[in-house]
């Protein structure tokens, strides 16, 4: 564990807490893409198949349970909670993400560290996470103004993988046999997808204005 990875995990945890706060405090999920939440639930379920087979540390196990539990809870809330579900932007959240899921799974069948059930699903989760934010970014552009908590949620979600890139550089420099090309390349693609959001987020922060993404 290094400071970059810890910062990344904490930033990721903060993004989940901000989203839970938004939904719980405002009893609304307007501006949040259910499709992105469902993709993230798939990412965690596919990535943490080793949850019960490989014990790495208490921290690792607890964080995996938190991410799986929170992503499923948010999907459940947005689908079935009788108050929250009413504020879901159903007609704006129309990204056909099964294309992404199919493409990522096909890529994982071709490109993986080892051809085993667990490894293929792990590579699938890495590729899927890289594009999981797309429905959310599309929804933000369509829904125009973005409320603060939603903007902060997306910001922290994008920032966490940027910390992981620093972690991979650090591990590459300090650990002799460290190579994680699948994670690194996907992580770069993932962070790059946030580039324009980060730009408009910074502009809105500098001008102390509402976050506006161009349509």
């Amino acid at each position: 564990m290094n400071i970059f990875r810890l910062a990344g995990d904490m930033t990721h945890l903060i993004s989940v807490l901000v989203l839970l706060l938004k939904i719980y405090a405002t009893k609304s999920c307007s501006g949040i893409s259910l499709k992105t939440q469902e993709l993230y639930a798939m990412v965690f379920l596919a990535r943490y198949l080793d949850l019960f087979s490989d014990f790495i540390s208490l921290y690792n196990t607890v964080m995996k349970l938190v991410f799986i539990g929170s992503s499923l809870a948010i999907v459940w809330c947005m689908r079935y909670h009788r108050v929250v579900r009413r504020s879901y932007d159903r007609e704006l959240d129309t990204f056909r993400y099964w294309i992404l899921v199919g493409a990522c799974f096909t890529l994982a069948l071709v490109l993986h560290e080892k051809f085993s059930f667990q490894e293929v699903f792990w590579a699938f989760s890495i590729y899927l996470e890289a594009v999981a934010i797309l429905p959310q970014l599309v929804l933000l552009q369509r829904s125009g103004n973005v409320d603060n908590l939603t903007g902060q949620y997306v910001f922290f979600l994008g920032a966490y993988r940027a910390f992981y890139i620093l972690n991979w550089i650090y591990r590459y420099l300090t650990e002799p046999r460290f190579t994680r090309w699948i994670s690194c390349v996907s992580g770069l693609v993932q962070t790059a997808l946030y580039a324009d959001f980060f730009y408009y987020y910074f502009i809105s922060w500098k001008n102390n204005a509402k976050l506006q993404l161009p349509a």
């Binding site: 990875r5 995990d9 990721h12 080793d50 490989d54 790495i56 690792n60 964080m63 995996k64 991410f67 560290e113 080892k114 085993s116 667990q118 490894e119 792990w122 992981y164 972690n167 994680r180 994670s183």
Partner: peptide, 10 residues
């Protein structure tokens, strides 16, 4: 600590 299939990250 490297894991059998090397995934010690979240």
């Amino acid at each position: 600590r490297e894991q059998p299939h090397g995934h010690d990250e979240l």
